[in-house]
């Protein structure tokens, strides 16, 4: 028992020889975001507040594919999406197709709390954001030079880069310092539980490089990229289509609920059987404070901490 928290910054084919400076920058960012979550958890803030807080921080960090630093669609714009869910009430909120909202995750939470709907998208979601007075920026604010370069390379390779799976520069034989090594194509997410077993999850993303305008991935889909109930809270990352098809996040919870297995067993089973090798990873915490962070890709940017003092920051 006790509080626990885990977060991720995407899973995929992260090169084992990721340059030390890049590795360090990401580890520092993970550590920073973990600390952002641990302090309020210790002070007794609700897990729902904590996952929102941590995901806001991950969104604001340009090294991760969410909020500022989101990857670009085929027409060079940003379309962000996010989902948040409270385990006790199973209340949830989800948004897609955001172009100006600084923190998609907070808009998802407002939707959950202020409207009778769960999921709003595109212009309707933007209109709701204006109505609620959340912070917005020009669409260009979210576009980083690294992502302009990624889109260029993806277009040259003439494909939708669905994941880290292949580093694009190998195919097109362009060595670009800015982009090599980590395609920044996952998602960000956070799951947390407090000492009373209250659970919450949040996931946010810019989607996949060179995606068609209007594409929706697994992140905002309750039961796919994001799910929480009274057993556990889960956030998944990887190839969206595979995660939706495998109802990955719900299945971790369903296995605990219907088969009575532990969080670790459930998470390991889903990572092995829920979708093909090389497609995704997930983070999860249970009501009793267990943590699981399995993945079937080369790596997953991840971090966790729990009340018993254990803590981990890892990539591969």
């Amino acid at each position: 028992m006790g509080w626990a928290i885990a977060l991720h910054g995407g899973a995929g084919d992260i090169p084992l020889d990721l340059p030390a400076d890049k590795r360090q920058a990401r580890e520092n960012a993970l550590k920073h975001c973990l600390d952002i979550g641990v302090s309020p958890l210790k002070l007794g803030r609700s897990p729902l507040d904590v996952v929102e807080l941590v995901v806001r921080e991950l969104e604001n960090h340009p090294l991760f594919n969410a909020g500022l630093g989101s990857v670009l669609t085929a027409d060079g714009s940003v379309e962000m999406e996010a989902c948040i869910m409270d385990g006790n009430t199973k209340k949830c909120g989800a948004v897609s197709g955001l172009k100006t909202v600084v923190n998609a995750i907070s808009l998802a939470r407002l939707l959950m709390e202020k409207t009778p709907h769960i999921y709003l998208a595109f212009e309707g979601a933007e209109a709701f954001a204006r109505e609620q007075g959340v912070e917005t920026q020009e669409p260009s604010h979210f576009i980083t030079p690294a992502n302009v370069e990624r889109l260029k390379q993806a277009k040259e390779a003439n494909r939708v880069q669905l994941d880290y799976t292949q580093s694009i520069e190998k195919e097109v034989k362009v060595e670009t310092h800015e982009v090599s090594g980590d395609s920044q194509l996952g998602t960000v997410g956070c799951v947390a539980v407090d000492g009373d077993g209250n659970l919450a999850t949040a996931t946010s993303t810019g989607g996949v490089v060179n995606k068609m305008a209007g594409r929706i991935g697994d992140t905002p889909i309750v039961g796919a990229g994001t799910y929480a109930n009274t057993y556990c809270a889960v956030s998944a990352t990887g190839i969206g289509e595979a995660i939706i098809r495998g109802t990955i996040a719900r299945d971790v919870a369903a296995l605990m609920e219907y088969k009575g297995v532990s969080l670790k067993e459930a998470a390991d089973y889903v990572v092995k059987n829920g979708a093909p090798e090389g497609t995704f990873g997930l983070i999860a915490v249970s009501a009793t404070g267990e943590i699981a962070m399995p993945f079937n890709t080369t790596g997953m940017f991840r971090a966790c901490a729990s009340q018993d003092g254990s803590s981990e920051i890892a990539i591969h």
């Binding site: 995606k211 068609m212 209007g214 594409r215």
Partner: peptide
């Protein structure tokens, strides 16, 4: 290449 398209992107 995707599985879910929405709004103007889906119309396009």
């Amino acid at each position: 290449p995707h599985s879910y398209l929405a709004f103007s992107g889906a119309e396009e």
